[in-house]
Design a protein around this nucleic acid. Sequence first.
RNA 1: GGACAGCUGGCCGAGUGGUCGAUGGCGCACGCCUGGAACGCGUGUGUAGGGCAACCUACCUAGAGUUCGAAUCUCUAGCUGUCCGCCA
Length: 414
Amino acid sequence: MIDVKLLQKNFDETAAALMRKKVDASVINELKIANETLKTAKLAYETLQAKQNELSRLFGQYKKEGKSTDELKIEVDANKATLNDLLDTQRSAEEALDAIIMRVPNIPDADVPDGEDENDNIELRKVLTPPTFTFTPKEHWELAEQNGWIDFERGVKLAKSRFSVVGGMGARLERALINFMLDFNRERGFEEYSVPMLVNRRALEGTGQLPKFEEDLFKVEEEELYLIPTAEVPLTNLFQDEIINGADLPIKMTGYTSCFRKEAGSGGRDVRGMIRQHQFHKVELVSITRADQSDAVFEEMVACASDLLAALGLPHRLVTLCTGDLGFGAARTVDLEVWLPGQNTYREISSVSNTRDFQARRAKIRYKEEGKNILAHTLNGSSLAVGRTMIAIMENFQQEDGTIVIPAVLQKYL
RNA sequence: GGACAGCUGGCCGAGUGGUCGAUGGCGCACGCCUGGAACGCGUGUGUAGGGCAACCUACCUAGAGUUCGAAUCUCUAGCUGUCCGCCA
């Protein structure tokens, strides 16, 4: 969540920054007004409450001294009704502000390029050269079925469309990739965690998936629990409502989880194959840092994901997202796009974001430095999406006969 | 799933209706002591919002209630513990 105080103090500048991220000017105005309304309501309530507290103290004193409390009681009772009204006013002002601010996205960093959509993203660099083929490379679904790695029909039988079953060597490769990625990340200083894949509402509000993106989440109705769309949610919220010793930062974490997304609104996109599934595996990186550390840690995380792809021999490129393509909570994002010869294009395989204090303010993640409590910075990134890595391996290392050469670094994990 | 017990500041723990934001201890910070340290002694030490100074408001798991007044009483929920049941 953005800093309302900043908006109040520095309205024009903050509003302009939000408008770069396609926030409507009217929403920003409503936000300002809602905040002012709340301040006024609070002041009115607290002033009267202070008086009421004083009268109550007197009441006790009078009783002790044996004085009559009749007059006091009349005044106190009268105040009480007003007080209740004022409290109601304050609460609805709070709710009104909350309803708006929880749906306002993060302010993009000043150096994030302006743009409408992914076409305006800016390529930073390419890593490794795409392979050349003496034959027409096949797409992954064809290779996956031919090798018996993925069974799309039976995934649908068990659940519904956009679910699949991985079997045989495919299943072993999947497990090998997960282990390889976790070990790789651990060597880079990211501590491994195994976390719940169902979380409560509070956690999802903390990282920004709720309340705005409820329709993207699978929910266990009777339990008020949601299946996580990414390990970013449990890993970041590990420190929800905590005050961390500044000397203990940065905290760098990695974890493997399944991820679940309804993919509402992705319509007919990527229906074929396993680019876009309701359930997929991902190894995630999450960092909690001091405000002055987040830029450096961001680069570490991007490097970690890129080097991981390079270690697997997968050509890819790094792209800075423009304002229009930036996610809800991100101040800046670098996407890693892996080369897919079958599709003859680069496709997203990782996304590394610095949310600065946006999530920390929602989740109350703070650190203590020189006796003061300061909102932490939180960062997250995939390293990597396992299914898409498998796709990339299939397409890049396919042979003319349809067999696939598995990267050497994975041999010891198989 | 059933029964009972409990949930207080970083931690332990006192507090059963009126200056209690909360005694005390541990921990931590600073100072004294010391060649240096331990010990000892002294001082300080929750979070958030508003004025941004004094001060005010809120918070003793959460929500609702009783009351002039609630950490203290009542109800509901959550969590933890113990026993029983169930499953492995």
